[in-house]
Design a protein around this nucleic acid. Sequence first.
RNA 1: GCCCUCCUGGCGCAAUGGUUAGCGCAACGGACUUUUAAUCCGGCGGUUCUGGGUUCGAGUCCCAGGGGGGGCACCA
Length: 457
Amino acid sequence: MTTKQIRDTFGDIADGEVTTQRHSLAGRVMLLRRQGKVAFAELRDQHGAIQLFARSNDLERFDAFGDLNLGDWIGARGFVGKTKKGELSLFIDSFVLLARAQRSFGDKWHGISDVDTRYRQRYVDLWANPETRVALTRRFRMVSKMRRYLEDLNFIEVETPLLHPIAGGALAKPFITHHNSLDMELYLRIAPELYLKRLIVGGFDKVFEIGRVFRNEGISPRHNPEFTMLELYEAYADYQDMMTLTENLVAYLVFDAFGTTKISYQDREIDFTTPWRRATLEDLTSESLGYEISLETPIEKLKEIADGLGIVGDSKWGSGKYLLEIYERTTESSLWDPVFVMDFPREVSPLSRDHRSKADRVERFEAIVAGRELANAFSELNDPIEQRRRFAHQVELAQGGDDEAMNMDEDYIRALEYGLPPTGGLGIGIDRLAMLLCDASQIREVIAFPALRKETL
RNA sequence: GCCCUCCUGGCGCAAUGGUUAGCGCAACGGACUUUUAAUCCGGCGGUUCUGGGUUCGAGUCCCAGGGGGGGCACCA
C-alpha cells in the first residue's frame, strides 16, 4: 500500500485503536524518535507520510530499527492503528532495510536553502523541500490534462524530428551538432512548426506535439535553453478559432488545478475567466502611449518614438519592426490579465497569413498573461509564392547580420506547393504556463533539472 | 554581454580587523515503553571557495580567479 491509501482507508478510526489488518509500506525514513523501548519514525513515500510505531516487545530487530539513518529506504509491515495521541500509525512488527542513505538530506527543519544545491541535486531538494515536489507534480499533471483535453477534441499527438537540417519555424539562434556518417551539420530544433504543417499537407487534420525545443540564448529567471512547447495545427481553422481554443484550454487547466479561474500569482490576482480580452497590437500600444500609433504612422515618427525609448534601430527595419519593438518596450509587460494581442505587422511574422481585411498586417495573435507571452498563434500562410518571398526577406536579414533570421526552406515551400489547407496554428510555452500554475517567479522552479554551468566535483 | 551581491563543519545559521572561529540540527556514544522539530547527558567534527595583497594581527579590508543569486539587455 501507499501512505495515502492507509490514510484514506483508516483515517477515521478511534484514538488508541489498533486494527487487525496487517499491511506493508515502503518509503524513506524522514524522522526518527527513539524513546527507550519504543520508537517512532516518519515514513515518507511519493504520496505523503505516515508514522511508524515500534515497540521492542513486538519488533524483533528493534535495535536495528533505532539505528536507521534519516534518508534510509525501508519496507515495514504491521497493523494499522492510532496512537493515544491520535496519530495514525503503522504498528510494525517487522521491517527491512532496502537501501542505506550515506549522505544527509539537510536540516530537518530548514531543509536545503542553498540554491545551487537545490537545482544541481534535485533528488535532495525533492526530499528536503516538499514545495519542489508540489510544483513539479502540478506541472506534470497539467501536461497530462492538456494531452487528454486535446485528444478529446480529436487532435492526434505526433512526433517530429528534433534534429533539423535547417533550423526553422521561429526566430532564434539554434544549437548546432554534427552527424558523423552523413557528414552534415544538424540543428536542434527551435520549433516543430514546419514539420507539423507538413503533416497537415499530408492529410492529418488536427495534430499536436508537446516537446522540447532548444534555443541558444542566455539563461534567465524566465529562460532555459531547452524548454517545452505545445504546438498544434488544425485544418480549416483560423486564428479566431485558435483564440477560442487557447482560452478554453488554459481556463480548463487553471480550473483543474485550483477549482476556480481566478488565481493568485505573485500576490496579484489573474482572472482567466473566458472570454479573454481581444485587442489589436496597435490599439493596445496607443493606449499605453497615450496617443495614436499604427502601421500608418510615418516611419520617421516611429523612429523618433523608438529613439526616445532607447531602442537602437537598424537601417533594415520597416514600420512593422519599429511598431513591434515599441509595443514590446511600452506595452507588453504592463498587460496582466489574459489578453489576445491581435494583428501583428506582416514584416515580423514570416509564417503568418495576410489579414483578410487589413493591409500589411497578418492574422496573428499573442496571448499575454502577467506581462509575458504565453501563446503565439496565427492563420498559417499557405501561399507558396508569398512564403518564398517572406523567406527571401529573412535571408536578406540574415546576410545583414541578423543571426536569428530564418533560412530558405525549399522543401517546406515544395510542401506548400502541394497545397496546405487553410490552417490555424498555436504554440504555448509549457514552462511559462506551469510558472503561472505554480506561482513560480523563476522558470527553474518548474523544471526538474534546469540548465546550469558545469559543475567541477 | 553589462551592473550589483553572496560563498564559514554534511545541513541551517553566528562571530565591532584582535586569544583556541561559536550555536542548532544531522552523524556518533549513553538514558528513557506513546513521541510529534521529543527531551536529557557525553564526546567528535572546520586550512572560513581558491590564489595573491594590506596589517603587529584577516572569516572580516583590497585585487584576481571559480561557483551561486538578483537586476538590465535579448528572447518564449
